[in-house]
Design a protein around this nucleic acid. Sequence first.
DNA 1: CGGAGTTATGAGGAGAGGTCTCGTAAGGTG
DNA 2: CACCTTACGAGACCTCTCCTCATAACTCCG
Lengths: 365, 365
Amino acid sequence: MTELRPGDASLLRKVNTQVTLRALRREGVATLTRLGRITGLSRQTVEAVLDELGGRGWVREVPPDEGVMGRPARRFGFRADAGHVVGVDVGGDRILACLADLNGDVVAWERAGVPDDAPAPERLEAARRTSLACVDAAGVPRTRVLTVAAGTSGIVDRTGRVSLSTVLPGWTGVDLAGLAGRWFGCTGLAANDANLAALAEHWRGSAQHASDVVYVLAGHRLGAGILIGGRLHAGRSGAAGEIGALRQVGWDDAARELVKEAGAEEVFAAAGAGDPEALRRVDHYAEGLAIGASALVLTVDPDLLVIGGGKARAGEVLLAPLRRHLAELCLRAPEVVTSTFGEESVALGAVRLALDHVEREVLNL
Amino acid sequence: MTELRPGDASLLRKVNTQVTLRALRREGVATLTRLGRITGLSRQTVEAVLDELGGRGWVREVPPDEGVMGRPARRFGFRADAGHVVGVDVGGDRILACLADLNGDVVAWERAGVPDDAPAPERLEAARRTSLACVDAAGVPRTRVLTVAAGTSGIVDRTGRVSLSTVLPGWTGVDLAGLAGRWFGCTGLAANDANLAALAEHWRGSAQHASDVVYVLAGHRLGAGILIGGRLHAGRSGAAGEIGALRQVGWDDAARELVKEAGAEEVFAAAGAGDPEALRRVDHYAEGLAIGASALVLTVDPDLLVIGGGKARAGEVLLAPLRRHLAELCLRAPEVVTSTFGEESVALGAVRLALDHVEREVLNL
DNA sequence: CGGAGTTATGAGGAGAGGTCTCGTAAGGTG
DNA sequence: CACCTTACGAGACCTCTCCTCATAACTCCG
C-alpha cells in the first residue's frame, strides 16, 4: 500500500513545492498573491518556492501586467520548454513520433512508413530515425528530451521489454524501453499500445471524467487497455486486457467475416446507407466485439468503455449495435463512446506516460 | 489522482504520528529509542507523538523491562482494546459474525443458521442478533464497536446498498451498510462477499504477498473479488468480477453436471481415489471454472488466483485439472492456490474492511 | 500635476516541529 | 562501591510557515 516515511521539515517544502507547481501549471502565468490564494499558502511561502524553482530552471519571471490597479505584481510562468518528452507509436506499418513540451502541448509530429514484415532491427532503426527527426525538425536540442516512451502491439512487461508479440516479426524479446532511452541518452519507457491509447483518452480525450476505463482497440486483433482509478493497470506481466486469447468469445470469426469480400470501410459505409447484408455483417462484428468487451466490462465494471482502433471510425454505425449487444450481455453496461484521437492516441498516450515519469522523477516531487 | 493539499506544520505531526503508530503496532510493545530507530525519527519526536496518542487513549505505557543492561526504558504498547470492529457474513443459510480488536485479532465468533428462503427482514434481524450476541458474549461494551462491516452475495454499490441479489429473497434494495451501522450506532459498511474474501486472503491468507489478486468464489454461483494494488476494486456499481453473467463460458452446465447425482464432496472424494467417471466430472467442472476464471485472469493479469468457496475444500483434486485448463486458456497463467480461511473468509474480510475504515477515519491519520 | 486609492513587496517577529548534544538518572556488573 | 550501559530531560538551533505592518509602485481622478 502506501509506503510511509517519516517527515522532517523539508517534507513540507516538498509538498508545498508540488502544490505550487501544479497550481502554476494550471494557471499558466500567475502572481504570487494569486498563487497564494488558490493554493492556500502564504505569499511568502509561494515566493520562496518559486525562487527555488526559478533557480532550477523550471519557472521564469515574466513582465508584469500593465494597465491594472495598484502596484504591478511580479508574475511567474512555468517554463514548459525547460524540457521535452517524446512519445512514439511503433506500429505494424508505420511509425508515429510526437514531441511535446512539459505542459504536454504537442510541438511536432513525425511520421514514417515501415513494411509490415520489416525485421525488428529495421523497425527499430525507423523508430529511432523518426523520433530524432521529430525533435530535430522542431529545433529542440536532443539533450532537452528528458524521457522517451514507446508504444507497440504485443505484451510489454514492466521493465519495458516486449515479452510477446504475435504480429511483428522478431519483436518478441526486444528491450524497447532500453533502446528508446539510448536514442536520446535519457530514460526510456515502453508499454502496450492499447494501454497508452487508454491513457491518452483519459488525459485529454473522451475518458477525461472517468476513473475506471476500459479501452478496446478494435482493429485486426482485439487488444484492450485498462485504467483503474485513473492509473494504468498493466498486470503482473503487462498482459492485462489481452482478452483476444479468449477463444470462446469467437472474436476471430466475427472480424474475419466483416472483411470477407470488401474492405471494412465499404461495409460500414453500405451499412450506414441501409444495405441489409452490410447491416447484418456489421451486427455480427459488433456482437463479436461486444462478447469480447463484455468479459472486460463484467470483470472491471468500468465507468466508461472507449472503442478505438481503425474500426472505431465507423462511429454510430458500429456503436449502436454494439451498445445493444452489450446491454444484453452485461447486467449494467457502461457508457460507450469512440476514441477522440484515433490514430494519434498511442503516441499521445506515450507522451502522457513520459510526462508522468518526468513529473515523478525529474521534478522529483 | 492524488488530491494534494498544502501543508502547514501540523501535517508533519500527522505524518509522523501515523509512522510511529504503525511501527508501534508492528512491534506490539516498544521503547522510545527503538521506535526512533525503526521509524527514523528522533526519540523526542516519538515521545511527543506517544504522549498525544496516550492522551487520546490509543497508546498505554507498560511496565519497563527488567534484567537488562542500562537504565530501564519506558515502554509503550498499542491499546488494541481501545476499540473493536465487527465483521459479519450474511450468507444464504447462515450468519457468521466476528468481533476483532484494533489489531485485527479475533476476540469472538458467533454463528447462527437462517432459512434459505427467509425474507429480508428475518435475515436482517438474525444478522443483527448474531452480531450483538457476538459482542455481548465477549464482554465488550457495545459502544466500543467503532465500525461494523457486512458481506453478502449480490451486487453491493459503493454506498453499501444491495443493488441486485438473485439468490436471497427480497434482498435487492436493502441498505445493508446503513442498517448494520444502526445496530451499534456507528459507521456501517457493506460489500460483496467475494470481494471481502479476497481482502481477507490478502490480509492474512494465501495472497499476502500478492498485489493484484483475483479471488474466485466457486460455490453454487460464480463470483469473484478483485484486488488491484492490494486495494479492493469494486467497480462503478460494485459489480466488478460478476463474471457469472457471461453465458458464453458455459459455467452453469459444468456446475450442474458435477452434482448431477451425488453431492460434490462425494464426487471429489471418488476422484481422489481414482474413479474415472468422477475424475471426468471433476475435470469438466474444472474446465468450466477455468473458462470463467480465464476471463478474469486475461483481463486483470493478476499475481495470484485464489480459489475459494465450498468447492475449494477439494484441494489438489480440483486444483490440478484447473491449473491444466488454465494454462491452455491463458498465455501465462498466474499461480493458483486455495483459500486459507474457507468459510470464515468473508467475515474476516469484513473485519479488515472495517479496520481500514477505522484506521482512515477514526484514528484520522 | 499631485493626492487618493489600490495592490504588491519586504522585513521582522512568533510559533510549531524536528534534530542534535550533553549532562544526568537509573539500572546492571565486577 | 566504582564502572559500564542505556535512557531520560533540558536547552540550543534549524527549517518552514504564518502574520503584521510599513513601504513601494502604479492607476485614477480632480
